[in-house]
Design a protein around this nucleic acid. Sequence first.
DNA 1: CGGTACGTTGATATCTCTCAAAGCAGGTGG
DNA 2: CCACCTGCTTTGAGAGATATCAACGTACCG
Lengths: 219, 219
Amino acid sequence: MGLCGSVDLDELSALSAIGRRRTLAVGQVLAWAGDDNLLCANVVSGILKVTVSTANGREQIVGLVFAGDFVGQLFTETSSMTVTALVDSDLCVYPRERFERVLTEVSAMERMLLQRTVASLNDARERMLTLGKRGAQERVAGFLLDLVDRTAMAAPDGSISIDVPVSRGDMADFLGLTIETVSRQMTRLKALGAVALARGGRTIVVKERAALEALANPD
Amino acid sequence: MGLCGSVDLDELSALSAIGRRRTLAVGQVLAWAGDDNLLCANVVSGILKVTVSTANGREQIVGLVFAGDFVGQLFTETSSMTVTALVDSDLCVYPRERFERVLTEVSAMERMLLQRTVASLNDARERMLTLGKRGAQERVAGFLLDLVDRTAMAAPDGSISIDVPVSRGDMADFLGLTIETVSRQMTRLKALGAVALARGGRTIVVKERAALEALANPD
DNA sequence: CGGTACGTTGATATCTCTCAAAGCAGGTGG
DNA sequence: CCACCTGCTTTGAGAGATATCAACGTACCG
């Protein structure tokens, strides 16, 4: 079944040695976002939901997990998602770190690819939260903050300036908005004194990071 | 750099043997959604966008790829995403199948996990399209169709009925909508004769799949 | 010095959300 | 067996946000 059906005997026994059967009732939580990431599991029967939340408590389901599916975030120390049973469910639960150790004897490259894929997946899911639940202002401010963290350049006077590498159209597409809405939000950020614009909007000077952060994560 | 920096010498040489350097100008496309999935690549410098599209041509960026990042959909025969250069970019391109063959000598289990993670990632990205670009009607109709394909049960009279495993609230959350909007869309589907509802909306009988499909993928 | 693509701004339309109330189904206890 | 209670779903009216359509401004490039 799922994970168990497609591995060979050695690996299977290594797995079953560390796995424990566990039942979850409707509404019961397997793992909380923010807690230490101690578990991963294979779903024997039932349905679970994986959710992420905004700071002010709005919640977005980023995945549904059915029988045979694997659930858990490998390679991360802290859970960023909450896993909850939607119906009474039966799991085969593994301690995450021991589970990862079982994978240890394979080539470094596949390991790395797996890690990258996992990272991308987490990324994608975080983005779903934005697309599903955030307003235009939060999306734009959040995007700028991400850019700052990735590509910040110290300007001569010490202020932080970023070089927006994409057109307004691409930004809008990425954020699930229209060009006009993005533009209006940029104007708004400028009006609020959070940023200054140059080079036809392609260069952005962050005047008040705190203000940006407040706009990206409102209450 | 990226992929190349964290593998050992044997693997690195195996990789460089099958990789070719390639330059992409702004706007040039590395891979088209719908084409045979022949390539994957490591980005040496530049920025690419990964996009998916609706049937009627609306487009959603589901990922940005920076220097050091890996781009490509392993383990799938056909690309479902288009990869385009946002600025002049430098890549190290690999034939996908040969790249996968290099990974062949590792344990079956890590391979499988990797495949699953990749599948989840693709899933997540497809969902982003829904969240970013589809209207309420498309989201709900599409959700029902996905359910049908996963959990269809033949009713006594031959019609297809599905047992919605989640509350309206969960459905709404998953789809990035509110409960009320989902409910109104369900009512609308019923009014159009596409479905019938029972058990307080928890059981759905698909009367006209074609109608549902038309609503999920409008022009 | 245009021209062209990109960005901004404005007015209006549309869609979804929000708030509120009523309908339904299932479970519980009398 | 019925009445009631509780949670979920549906329906309604109105507010709010973003999309759309259209015009104008502005950088960059030859």
